[in-house]
Every structure is written in structure tokens, then in C-alpha cells.
Amino acid sequence: MGSRNSLLLCVLVFAVVSALFTGHPEAAWPLAQIDDYLLNILIMAGINVILAVSLNIVSGHTGQFSLGHAGFMAVGAYGSAAVTQIGGKPILNALSFLGGAAPICMFVLSLLVGGLLAALAGFAVGLPSLRLKGDYLAIVTLGFGEIIRVVIQNTEAVGGARGLTGIPAFTTLGWTWGLAAFCIYCVSALIRSTYGRGFLAVRDDEIAAEAMGVNTTKYKVTAFVVGSFFAGLAGALYAHLIGYITPEGFSFLKSVDVVVMVILGGMGSTLGVTVAAILLTALNELLRQAEQYRMVAFALLLIVLMIARPQGLLGGIDRWLQARRNRS
């Protein structure tokens, strides 16, 4: 537990510091002005942390392998963009009594809408998928992810296949890492709660858990809903960072990106997954020159990892830290 708390503390401190110093040009103390490119990468790293930690609830802690995470991200991105871009003016007018805080309130509202819509989608997917296990579940979540994408592609109100442009750039470093800290906190607290024990029980042995009176259905759906909510938040942050979203950006390959982060970090290890998300974001940028070799290398890494070290590169790191602390 200790390592999780210190992780949370690190992320929180980072969020507060970055909110104060670099959040946006008019930040309280704009001491450290970093260039936009680095800023974008840092924000993307935060978004990826949220995505990976949220998928980890579903796949790592509850053992329900999902390949549809990009679909929930898409719901969040489009849902929140609908608030700020399509409904922007009237909502801003309605919030005008808040004065200067109105745009920020609208952003918070859009984050909530994005997250809740994604959670709703997660509920809708989780409920029928419960009867399935392992590879079947993987295919069905993949199918749902694709259905979400096809529906968006054919909905002209949100731009169809052309995508949605002109989304205001509300996402800042502080917001992203603040929400990442919130996500890590929620997941760690959840895992330590009665609910969390239920998740772990479902993962370790579903039949035994059911025999002991654990309502497996409830825990699986809860995991899906919570995971989707945070995926939706990540999607909302992403939409307001890039300002332009297309259905193609949330394809199956985006889901695979997140899956690679979770597997590399070690399923069920929040710390490992957080580190893996940050590392992979940095690696993606470093390898941008060799884009076409990057995915080949990832694929090979995935295969070799599964054969040689299925717990992930960083899996078991929390237990190792724990053991070290106990010894000293």
C-alpha cells in the first residue's frame, strides 16, 4: 500500500506544481516556461496514464480482458466536445452569471458529461458481456468498440467521418495530471475496499468466488463502469487538447496501444502501469522518426514478453518495494 500512496503523492505534487507554474500563460507564477512541444507530450503522458490505469481496473484487477477501451474514450471525447463545441454558446450564456469562471465551469461540465456518457456505455457493454469469458469477451468488447466507431462515423451531427473540429483548447497540464492523480487515488482506494476484494476474487477464480457468495456480475459491471468513466475523462481531455477528433483516431489500434501499456506495466499493478504509460508516451515521441518500425518492435516485444515474462516488465514492482520496506 505504501508504494501506492507515495505514487499518488508524487503525481499530486506534480499536478499542483504544474498547475501553478505552467498551467497556461496566465498561470499564477509562470516561472518555468517550457516549450509547447514538451508541454503537449507531458499532457499526453497524463492522458495515457488515465487510460492505462482505468483499463487496468477492468483487465488487471478484475481479469476481464477488454479490447474496446478506445470506444469508451471516443464516447467521452465526443460527449464532452458536444458540450463545448456544439453547445458552446448557449451553455456559456447560461453560465454567464459565473463571470470569468464560466469557461472553466463549462469545461468541468463537459468532462463530467463525457465521463458519465462513457460510464453509461460501459454499463451497456458490461451487462450483456458478463456471460462471456476470456477470448469471447475480448472479441465482444472489440466488436462494441467498432460499433461505437461506426455509429459516430455515420452520425452527421458530430461531423461523421470528417470528424469534429474547433474544440476549444481547455486541457492544461494541471487539469490532466490532477485528474490522473484523482484516477490513481480512486483506483487504489477502490482496490483496497470491499469492492476491490470482490474484483480480485473474480479475477483469481470466478467459480470459487461465486461459490463463496460473491456477486460476480455486480463486480464485473462495476469494474466496467468505473473503467469506462475514466476512459471517457481521458477522451474528453484528449479532445480539448488536440481540438480535432475523428472516429478513425479511436480505432482498434488505439485500444491496442492502451493494452500494451497495461501488459508492459504488469496487469494489476497501478504503479507499474503508470510508469509504463509515461515511458511508452516518451518512447513514441522518440521513435517518431522510425514510425514504421515502432509497431513492429512493439508487436515483437508483446510476443517475447508473453513467452518470457508474462507478468510484464514492471509487474511485481509494488510487491518488491513492499518486501524491501519490510526488511529494513
Partner: peptide, 23 residues
């Protein structure tokens, strides 16, 4: 090994074929 491990490996093989093909 557990079926999940094999499934993930299969996804890896799938990506490997796709991106090697692209290359």
C-alpha cells in the same frame, strides 16, 4: 499457460504481421 497469455500473444502476432506487411 493461461488462455489470456496466449490471446495476448496472438494479438502480438497479428500486429507483427500487419506492420511487417506495411513495411
Amino acid at each position: 499457460r493461461p488462455r489470456l497469455t496466449v490471446l495476448i500473444t496472438a494479438i502480438g502476432v497479428s500486429l507483427l504481421l500487419e506492420y511487417s506487411g506495411q513495411l
